[in-house]
């Protein structure tokens, strides 16, 4: 169970010679099974690069990533993945988009009939199953994309700023949706964000990444009870965590 994901001296350099950009690392991280870990850092620190390397979609320059002692050497098919710009296609309905995930993976659609309904219901989209993405608001689209990323029941979910383009109120709402879904199945979640409050509210642990080249500055365990509703967010302890993290980025001159 413990140390499910291991990242060892991972480094990424883009380009060659004079155009060389040292984007990320070297970094060592280990993540336990069922943890909700946020990777928090300023823009350009390489946190999205880290996520793509974890998903096996980008080759690291050096170092190693392993899931459950199996090292990543190509696109990982057993995870769920979600980006800032969603992967919903405009020619399929919300339900059709969720099925797309299953169809591409050669999974049997009839096995998932109830699951599709359940997951849509959990984010209150059950009445929008037959709508097309362009008909939905940005928040609804991201919730649908979240269902798409989760429907094949991956035990690891990588989220790359999935709420980045949403307004503050919608973000608040979807945070609690994500938290609820995580609490049901307890998948391992790696959540890339640049919102300090979001990281503190959702995660059991926050990994702070320095400005480029991104390295781990420190890791902070967030010792607050779940579910973290408004009450928890009003507590002093919540704000102590937020201030602690703010100070770190203030020292870097990022905020």
């Amino acid at each position: 169970m413990d140390q499910f994901i291991k990242i060892k001296s991972l480094k990424k350099v883009f380009g060659e010679g004079e155009d060389e950009v040292h984007a990320f690392g070297p970094v060592d991280i280990s993540i336990n099974s069922g943890e909700f870990v946020s990777v928090l850092g300023p823009s350009g620190c390489g946190k999205s690069t880290l996520m793509l390397m974890m998903a096996g979609l980008l080759e690291p320059t050096s170092g190693e990533i392993s899931f459950d002692n199996k090292s990543v050497d190509g696109p990982k098919n057993d995870i769920g993945i979600m980006f800032q710009d969603n992967t919903l296609v405009p020619w399929r309905t919300v339900e059709g988009n969720i099925k797309l995930q299953l169809e591409l993976r050669n999974l049997n659609l009839s096995d998932y009939k109830d699951k599709i309904f359940d997951i849509l219901k959990s984010v209150k989209l059950e009445d929008f199953a037959n709508r097309y993405p362009p008909e939905l608001s940005g928040g609804m689209q991201q919730r649908a994309a979240f269902c798409q990323a989760m429907i094949h029941e991956p035990n690891t979910i990588l989220l790359d700023e999935p709420l980045g383009k949403l307004d503050a109120m919608t973000r608040e709402k979807i945070r609690s949706d994500i938290q609820n879904l995580w609490m049901i199945n307890k998948p391992t979640v790696v959540f890339v964000t640049h919102s300090i409050e979001e990281a503190v509210q959702l995660s059991s642990r926050v990994i702070l990444i320095s400005p480029r080249p991104g390295v781990v500055d420190r890791e902070i365990n967030i010792d607050l009870p779940y579910p973290r509703d408004l009450e928890v967010k009003k507590s002093n302890k919540f704000y102590e965590y937020v201030y602690e993290i703010q100070e770190v980025f203030h020292e870097y001159g990022v905020i």
Binding site: L57, P75, I81, N86, V89, L104
Partner: peptide, 21 residues
């Protein structure tokens, strides 16, 4: 870019990716 990453992450074969995406 997102759809490219998405279909790669599903491991779908090229023919399926072609017709579905």
């Amino acid at each position: 870019n997102e759809l490219t990453l998405f279909h790669r992450s599903t491991g779908a074969n090229p023919l399926k990716t072609f017709f579905k995406i």
